[in-house]
Design a protein around this nucleic acid. Structure first.
Length: 240
DNA sequence: CCCTGATTCGC
DNA sequence: GCGAATCAGG
């Protein structure tokens, strides 16, 4: 694979959106995580908080010694005397109940008021899905060599709550929502306000849902009668 | 172990 | 320019 404008655009967009190199590589397809990172750097994309990167080299000139004769009234540091510090901070007790002490006399009528009792479930850890042999709309059959992950426990019936992105993009599948099991087919163009992804369940084994697999994977037709308008994931060349 | 990004270096 | 190999932190 080569770095076409589209692919670079995708890389930039996703990188800036905070996607991991692995995710980007997977979305792009045909490239490794390293390739993505390498390219990102060559493009001059700013590195995001990486695990291995404490801080700047030695920058800070070890400011000489500022004796500060009469410095500020430094609160007496704990005179080390084996004084078992305060173990305070009892249980923070994750309170949810707003008022329980004051306002004992609540009105006794509205209890049907079910606010969003968000049950924040940890980030959707991506876990392999049971691979199901699938057949694309065009009748193609995926015959992957030796890359079929073994089945694993299906995700438990958890209710995922979106981290509440921006109001206008609510309901849309954004870059941040991408994972292994939703259709990554792009709708719109990166950078545009309503750019989002299909978001349907993927055709197992593919990055797109069944419908979009139909667009992405075309049966090879004789050159003579091949359709010009190609798939162009991620919007393809910007048309404005 | 897994993950992450950074860097190096042969191509 | 590219990306595998390697490194190193979490």
């Amino acid at each position: 694979m080569s770095w076409t404008d589209e692919r670079i655009d995708t890389l930039k967009t996703m990188w800036e959106a905070g996607q991991t190199a692995s995710q980007i590589a997977e979305a792009l397809g045909g490239v490794s995580r390293n390739a993505v990172i390498g390219k990102a750097h060559r493009l001059g994309l700013q590195s995001r908080p990486s695990p291995v990167k404490p801080n700047e080299p030695v920058a800070a000139a070890p400011v000489p010694d500022v004796p500060l004769p009469e410095a500020e009234p430094e609160p007496a540091p704990p005179p080390v005397v084996a004084a078992p510090p305060a173990p305070p901070r009892p249980a923070p007790e994750p309170v949810v109940a707003a008022d329980a002490d004051e306002d004992e006399d609540d009105v006794v009528e509205d209890d049907a008021d079910e606010e969003e009792d968000e049950e924040v479930v940890a980030a959707p850890k991506r876990e392999p899905q049971p691979i199901l042999r699938s057949v694309g709309p065009g009748g193609f059959v995926r015959q992957s060599p030796g890359e079929q992950q073994p089945p694993s426990t299906p995700a438990p019936p958890r209710r995922l709550v979106p981290a509440k992105p921006s109001p206008e993009i609510a309901g849309k599948t954004t870059l941040l929502d991408l994972n292994d099991r939703i259709c990554k087919w792009p709708l719109g163009h990166p950078g545009e306000p309503d750019f989002h992804f299909c978001g349907d369940k993927v055709n197992p084994g593919f990055p797109y849902c069944v419908a979009h697999c139909g667009h992405a994977y075309q049966a090879q037709l004789p050159r003579r009668d091949r359709r010009p308008p190609p798939p162009l994931p991620f919007g393809g060349p910007r048309v404005r």
